[in-house]
């Protein structure tokens, strides 16, 4: 059918129409980047930058960037910015915020940066209730080095150094960083969204907005984890990225608001605010319990043997 259907010209804007969404977020100096096809990080970037624009805080914002694929956004984001070392962005952001307490300060880190290399930094920054917003782009893989296991890789996930899939007994268990940070008294707002479909993008945008609003109210540490597609690092076709994300990462790192201060105003999610998103075909716990089933634990069955 497609071959026959008439194609609408899309080379230039039509007459008698108004633009409802711009090509490039206001705070991007160029739409060009070197991310792979199907990467979810630019989607998260748009969410972040659009939110800053809409909040009207771009001219009092400092970004602190970690090291990963997304580091290249340092050169394209039209924001005052400090480039940090791998893992260290929360501490650098702490120094920035303490010297510029009336500015909006956020970090952008990947899961390798935040949950592997810099785990204690984000934990302590959250525990101190540092008034910064940490944004985690979590794709469960070291994308920049070419697809290696991180601390958030899920059980069964194939990476270049877990060729048979991540095995809990041999490689350990993934860390649900959002859940961990939500337990700390210093964290005011914690949420986990994703960019694997347009609805998720819209929900994630509300989370990012609420995180920054929490910072503007001075409530403490705010955190938004955004699950992003990495088809290159997952070794799946680009078009299958969203589905793979939902079936793997999304089942362990379940989406939803994990924590919000009572005074933070009503949630856009209404009743579902503090609960994982409902999903068709069974709740996330089904899959999680499958991944962490008793028989898969050490000594629980023949599959558990890895020669240790």
């Amino acid at each position: 059918m497609t071959a026959e259907r008439s194609i609408v010209p899309t080379g230039s804007p039509p007459a008698s129409a108004h633009r409802v969404a711009e090509l490039t977020p206001d705070l991007l100096l160029t739409e060009e980047h070197q991310m792979c096809p199907g990467c979810g990080e630019p989607l998260a970037l748009r969410v972040l930058l659009d939110t800053l624009s809409q909040l009207g805080v771009a001219q009092r914002t400092v970004a602190v960037m970690g090291i990963g694929c997304y580091t290249s956004f340092s050169g394209t984001m039209d924001l005052d910015l400090v480039q940090a070392l791998h893992g260290r962005a929360p501490s650098v952001a702490t120094g920035v915020k303490r010297m510029l307490p009336d500015r909006v300060v956020f970090t952008m880190q990947g899961d390798g940066d935040m949950v592997n290399e810099g785990l204690q930094e984000v934990v302590h920054t959250a525990a101190r209730g540092e008034s910064v917003t940490a944004v985690l782009l979590n794709n469960g893989v070291f994308g920049e080095t070419g697809g290696h296991m991180t601390a958030t890789s899920v059980i069964g996930q194939r990476t270049k150094n877990t060729l048979e899939g991540r095995d809990a007994e041999y490689h350990g268990h993934p860390i649900r960083i959002g859940d961990l940070l939500a337990t700390l008294d210093g964290s005011a707002y914690v949420a986990r969204g994703s960019v694997h479909n347009a609805g998720a993008v819209a929900r994630t945008k509300r989370m990012v907005r609420r995180a920054f609003e929490s910072q503007l109210r001075g409530e403490g540490f705010s955190f938004v984890e955004i699950l992003t597609m990495c088809p290159t690092g997952w070794f799946v076709p680009t078009a299958e990225g969203p589905g793979y994300m939902d079936d793997t990462l999304g089942q362990v790192h379940t989406m939803g608001e994990l924590k919000a201060r009572p005074g933070g105003g009503p949630s856009d999610h209404a009743s579902g605010a503090l609960a994982p998103e409902a999903r068709p075909g069974g709740g996330p716990s089904d899959h999680a319990s499958g991944a962490l089933a008793p028989e898969a634990r050490p000594g629980g069955g023949p599959e558990g043997g890895v020669g240790r």
Partner: peptide
């Protein structure tokens, strides 16, 4: 919203 390469503008 789902385009990583920012090729769309919507009217």
């Amino acid at each position: 919203d789902m385009c990583p390469d920012f090729v769309f503008e919507v009217y």
